[in-house]
Structures are given as structure tokens and as C-alpha cells.
């Protein structure tokens, strides 16, 4: 059961990655691209967790945690850049 569900889920998440990537490339505005990048981070976490279940390895957790942390910080930094024109005071 699980072995047949995971490939479907992987396919769905990969399609999600492709759509976010298309939005990242096409824009049209800067906030759109940042939003697409943020979505890509979250999709990457989903892909990693699915692979972790598929391969039965808990090692992917640390990578997913780091992506979650860094993705959030990156989004905030980019938004700050758009809002103020610089990042570090």
C-alpha cells in the first residue's frame, strides 16, 4: 500500500516544484519571485520527507530542518531588501 502511494505523492510534489519554478522564472514582479522561492523551499521539505519515508532513513530530517530555517530567513531578508533597499542596518 505504502509502496504504491509514495510514487504518486512524489509525482504530485515534483509537479508542484515545477509549477513554483515556472512562477520563479516568469515573475512578473519581485514579490512574485520571492513567493515562488519560498514555496520552493517548502516543496523541497516535502520532497525530502517523502524520500525519507521511501528509503526508511531518518537522516533527511536535519536537512529539512535546515532548509526550513534558512528558507524563512532568506524570505525575510529579501522582503526587507524590497521594503528598505538594504538589509543590514
Amino acid at each position: 500500500m505504502l509502496n504504491s502511494v509514495i510514487p504518486i505523492a512524489l509525482g504530485l510534489v515534483t509537479a508542484a516544484v515545477a509549477m513554483s519554478f515556472w512562477r520563479l522564472l516568469s515573475g512578473p514582479s519581485m514579490p512574485d519571485r520571492i513567493l515562488a522561492l519560498d514555496t520552493l523551499y517548502i516543496n523541497a521539505i516535502a520532497l525530502l520527507m517523502l524520500l525519507g519515508i521511501h528509503l526508511g532513513s531518518a537522516l533527511f530530517f536535519e536537512a529539512a530542518l535546515l532548509i526550513a530555517l534558512m528558507g524563512f530567513i532568506g524570505t525575510v531578508a529579501l522582503c526587507k531588501y524590497l521594503l528598505r533597499g538594504d538589509i543590514i542596518e
Partner: peptide
């Protein structure tokens, strides 16, 4: 897993 993957897909579909 299926619900999660479908919701992730729908979220990105909204983006598109």
C-alpha cells in the same frame, strides 16, 4: 501522505 501531497500540489497550482 496523499492528502499532504495533494495539498502541496494545489498550493503550487494556486501560484500558477
Amino acid at each position: 501522505i496523499l492528502t499532504g501531497a495533494t495539498l502541496t500540489f494545489i498550493g503550487s497550482l494556486g501560484l500558477l
